[in-house]
Every structure is written in structure tokens, then in C-alpha cells.
């Protein structure tokens, strides 16, 4: 299984609802946004080109943060194919933060959940550890695990009935974020990527990112 996110840039309004949704869902301190929306402008008057680039964690297939972690706190989750941090093992050395070419990782200087009211379901993270986007593992990961245990089909699929999706995907006003399993040839993301041109961030770094941009 390989959970991926496809971002349709033509529909991103740049309103940052996803950032706010992520902050609330994961009880993130406001300085430590897990996802960002970059705003790039180029060209000359009157032919400007403006592009919004939403950026969650890329959950790379060859993640440098996992390779560098001295305590094996950063791991590639076998079930979902995402990169997760075992907060109990993290010693806060922050090697991973320097290894990540996308700079998605942030450090918990304070105990999270102090600034915004906490979501009871959000993962507990102690002070002094690194953290990052989990693709809402407490929702999606749990659903996949439960489904496997119960022997049913999981609902981590865009457009499925009662779908379980990351907060940013659910909350996107322009419906620009799309989420699903790329290993499943019938999933919405597989069909999208087979029919569209796509881009990834920093292909040259060889990290094989799992967030794809279409236009």
C-alpha cells in the first residue's frame, strides 16, 4: 500500500483553509505548521503567472530523514507506506530536520496543544521532539488497520462513501487536494496520475516523493 496525495494546482485558491484545518486537527502550535501553501509569482505585467504550491510532507519512498535517524524513531510505516515518527524514541537531535530537503519537519519547543484547543483524537507528542505531517495517521492509519483486522475494504479513498481522509483534504475549499492508495489501480489517485501530467518537488534529490502536482 502506498498512500499518496495528488494536488490539483488549478483549483487551489490559496485560502490556507488546509493549514488551519491541519492545525486544529493535530493540535499544532501556530509556529509549527505541518503544511504550508507557497505563493509563487513570475512573469511581467500584464502576463503574470501565479501559482499556489500547497506542501504537506512528501512521505518519500526513499526518505533521507529515516536513513539519518540515529534512534530509528523515524520509520517508514509498512502498512500505509507513510513516514511516521515514534515520539517515544525521538531524542530531539534534529538530524532529520537538516536531512529533509523539503524542510517539512518542525521541532516542539513547547508541549503541543497549548495554543489551540486540543483535538482529543490527535496524536500525543511530548515536548522536545520533532514532528511533521502524518497524513493524519490517527485517522487514516487507524481506519486501514481496523479494516484489515475486520477483513473489510478500507475507506481511505477519495470519493468513497464515508471516506476517511486527512483534514487538509476534507477541508479544501477548492477540492484541490486528492488522497488515496496508489498501489490500488482502481483508486481515484491512480486513475488521475495515469491520465495526467504530473510534477513532484525536487525530483533531482532522488527521494521519490509521494505528493504529486497536476495542473
Amino acid at each position: 500500500m502506498r498512500l499518496v496525495m495528488v494536488i490539483d494546482q488549478s483549483k487551489c485558491l490559496g485560502c490556507k483553509s488546509c493549514v488551519v484545518a491541519c492545525n486544529i486537527e493535530n493540535s499544532i502550535e501556530t509556529n509549527n505548521n505541518w503544511t504550508e501553501v507557497f505563493d509563487m509569482v513570475s512573469g511581467q505585467f500584464p502576463n503574470y503567472h501565479r501559482e499556489f504550491v500547497p506542501r504537506p510532507c512528501n512521505h518519500c519512498s526513499k526518505p533521507p530523514c529515516v536513513d539519518i535517524c540515529p534512534t530509528k524513531a523515524s520509520q517508514k510505516d509498512k502498512l500505509t507506506g507513510t513516514v511516521q515518527i515514534d515520539q517515544k524514541r525521538c531524542t530531539g537531535c534534529r538530524y532529520c530536520m537538516s536531512a529533509c530537503p523539503y524542510k517539512v519537519r518542525v521541532f516542539n519547543w513547547k508541549k503541543p496543544g497549548k495554543v489551540l484547543n486540543e483535538n482529543p483524537a490527535s496524536p500525543k507528542r511530548p515536548k522536545g521532539t520533532t514532528e511533521k505531517c502524518t497524513f493524519c495517521f490517527h485517522k487514516t492509519g487507524k481506519e486501514i488497520f481496523d479494516a484489515k483486522k475486520e477483513g473489510r475494504k478500507h475507506r481511505v479513498e477519495y470519493n468513497a462513501k464515508d471516506a476517511v481522509l486527512p483534514a487538509c483534504v476534507e477541508k479544501c475549499v477548492g477540492k484541490s487536494r486528492i488522497f488515496g492508495d496508489l498501489d490500488d489501480p482502481d483508486s481515484f489517485v491512480s486513475r488521475l496520475l495515469s491520465k495526467n501530467q504530473y510534477k513532484v518537488l525536487l525530483k533531482s534529490k532522488g527521494t521519490k516523493p509521494n505528493v504529486f502536482y497536476i495542473n
Partner: peptide, 26 residues
């Protein structure tokens, strides 16, 4: 950088699920 083959956009055909369930914010 571009990846897969060029094709028609699937988004248009598949349509969007406007009613996303479970957008609950605690």
C-alpha cells in the same frame, strides 16, 4: 519535471464529490 503520459483530465469526467462526510473539527 513531468511524469506520466499526457491525457485528458479525469477530473472532468469523474466529477467531484461535493458532499465530503465527516468534516468535524474538535
Amino acid at each position: 519535471i513531468t511524469g506520466a503520459a499526457v491525457g485528458t483530465t479525469l477530473l472532468g469526467q469523474a466529477g467531484y464529490n461535493l458532499l465530503q462526510p465527516g468534516q468535524v473539527y474538535y
